[in-house]
Design a protein around this nucleic acid. Structure first.
Lengths: 350, 350
DNA sequence: CTTGGCACTCTATAATTGCGAGTGCTAAAT
DNA sequence: ATTTAGCACTCGCAATTATAGAGTGCCAAG
């Protein structure tokens, strides 16, 4: 009643105790009592004193008692303070760095690199690893190839950048001979190799409008097919998830109903993708604790993400999903390092 | 004591009751008592009479009481008799057939077809769907293409059969120019197009031995690269799993520990693959009930499989995994039909 | 400001009870 | 010879109660 505004600033001691409490809780998974805290911390304080501090912390919203006679558990706000200012990030085990580096061998195909990265994340953190598929904005056309199939269908093969090969079956208006297709491919190759895919498409449409009448059959063929081949600009919004099974080992998720909704969200992909997309802009490691993510399915989870990039261009995001009670100091460097190494591996082209 | 061998043959009535019991249990998931059975079945029998029959069935090992005062539950042997001779297979909903057909559009890439099939299986059956990757024994070489990369690396593109494209980065002894690579590809294409991959590899090795000295540099290049490109004969033992989450909805598996081991087995893949491999030889639908599969993780599951084939050649196996208590009469035609339609979709090539 | 003491609260675990469902057996009925 | 009604019995499940233990808040003394 006397002072209306409670002190906003945490004493040194309160911070220290909060840190120890969070660490304790992360390790044990059970509410931390005052006695435990007085034993663990180096400050020689009696449980009673600690109880007073805990009462303050609770009033300020950093910890919470599940019930009268349980210890304290960090709230989201408590975790937040912890990761923002109380955390001492553990340096990554050099063995782990070596393992990641080895798994991300630079001459794997991009797809394989993504999968490896996801596996590494989940393997080392023992939680779920996620890597979004890299954005492919700047794909330089390297080569086009057409092969005739039956029934007016053509197999188109596109090589982009280095190592990236895509192929698709397209339907065309009439049957083309192998020679015709060869010509068409030659035309496209000579005109557009080295150009960005988006540019290619744009130029082709332009060309169609400009020269519709004067087109020879070869060019007609080329354009008919190119039109079908190049629209694959659709942002392939997708990610590779690994180790979702690891999440079954955590007591706070060991309940089929919670698991079900969580796993279904993983399958749905939509929510997770929008969450990860938000991290594209962030500079480094970003952390969503519990409800902070904004998705109820992740209420009891935390997500640690980092964007990965090549030559300064951010291509995607990767991260780890686990229970709120995760070893942030261990996970943060794992995510950070994996992002860097994945970027490096993707870069080694040419 | 009087007759040492109990009657081995089930009376008509006993069979009928067993059938109804299994159907009841599959629907309700709870032990079926004599009263329920007397109400459900059309035979006008009192519970007491039915109890006598149940005692017989139990003695013969077809049903089992979880405890003194519960109803009866089918044993594996009971399910076996049920699926072997008591079952009346429900014809597939024509809507479902249409849905499958539509999803398995014949000009999807094989990989996409496999994934679609797995999704259909899990979606329609509301259990987990599995499709093993097709065997690729008879892959006829269609075209080879080489593109130079930096650092003595070459991107090799292989087109096989129709629509199947593979690519890999290979390391070569020295840098080759684009023209050299073109020549090498031309040579391989002219010599080997239409040949089986295994044959190609064999002939190449032969060639190497026979003409080592007389080889010109072009052929040397061709062979150096082909050697690395063609060994990819490794049986790609793998499968596509879909809808494992569906299994969380079944009460008998709603227990995190059981789910964990099951899901881990799905990830491991090894056991499931050997199980599915056994089904390659079977003519049509094959069913493993509970322990019959021989893998303890599947003790509480049944697996319904069918091989899928193109032109009489069996390429792989697909199936559904669910709790022992599954609606076999519904699942069997689903698996059967999907196998047929997948085969058909894979066939439509050329 | 810190601390020991103490009454109090609340959960988790175990023990107790009662209920209901279903059985097996026996003796009567068809 | 089969079917049926009756009845005692068994067992699991759910609700209830008892118990122990952990941890708190508060107060008064250091």
């Amino acid at each position: 009643m006397s002072d209306i505004t409670p002190k906003k600033v945490l004493s040194e001691r309160a911070q220290h105790l909060l840190r120890v409490l969070v660490q304790c809780y992360i390790q044990e998974g059970q509410p931390v009592g005052s006695r435990m805290l007085s034993r663990v911390t180096e400050l020689e304080l009696s449980p009673a004193t600690i109880r007073n501090v805990m009462a303050d912390l609770e009033e300020m919203g950093f910890v919470h008692s599940p019930h009268t006679s349980a210890g304290r558990v960090p709230t989201v706000q408590g975790y937040r303070l912890f990761v923002d200012s109380l955390l001492t990030v553990a340096p990554l085990q050099s063995a782990d760095v070596a393992a990641i580096k080895q798994q991300l061998a630079p001459d794997l195909a991009p797809q394989d690199l993504i999968e490896s990265a996801s596996n590494m994340l989940s393997g080392i953190s023992r939680m779920a690893g996620v890597v979004t598929m890299p954005r492919r904005e700047h794909r330089a056309l390297r080569q086009v190839e057409f092969l005739p199939l039956s029934d007016n269908r053509v197999l188109a093969i596109l090589v982009m950048n280095e190592r990236e090969v895509q192929n698709r079956v397209i339907h065309v208006g009439r049957a083309y001979s192998a020679a015709e297709l060869q010509q068409a491919a030659n035309y496209l190759n000579s005109e557009f190799v080295g150009k960005d895919i988006a540019t290619v498409r744009q130029k082709l449409l332009q060309e169609m409008h400009d020269t519709r009448e004067r087109m020879n059959s070869m060019m007609q063929a080329a354009i008919e097919m190119a039109e079908q081949v190049f629209p694959l600009e659709t942002d392939n919004d997708d990610y590779v998830l690994a180790g979702q099974n690891n999440l079954m080992d955590f007591a706070e998720l060991s309940n089929v109903d919670k698991l079900r909704v969580l796993f279904q969200a993983f399958n749905q992909k939509r929510d997770l993708l929008t969450l990860f997309d938000q991290c594209v802009r962030a500079e480094g490691v970003q952390i969503f604790i519990g409800e902070e993510s904004g998705y109820k399915v992740l209420d009891e989870c935390s997500v640690v993400t980092a964007p990965y990039s090549v030559n300064g261009k951010i291509l995607g995001v990767l991260g780890v999903i686990g229970p709120t009670r995760m070893a942030y100091e261990r996970v943060i460097p794992i995510v950070d390092m994996t992002a860097k190494l994945l970027g490096a591996a993707l870069n080694q082209r040419g």
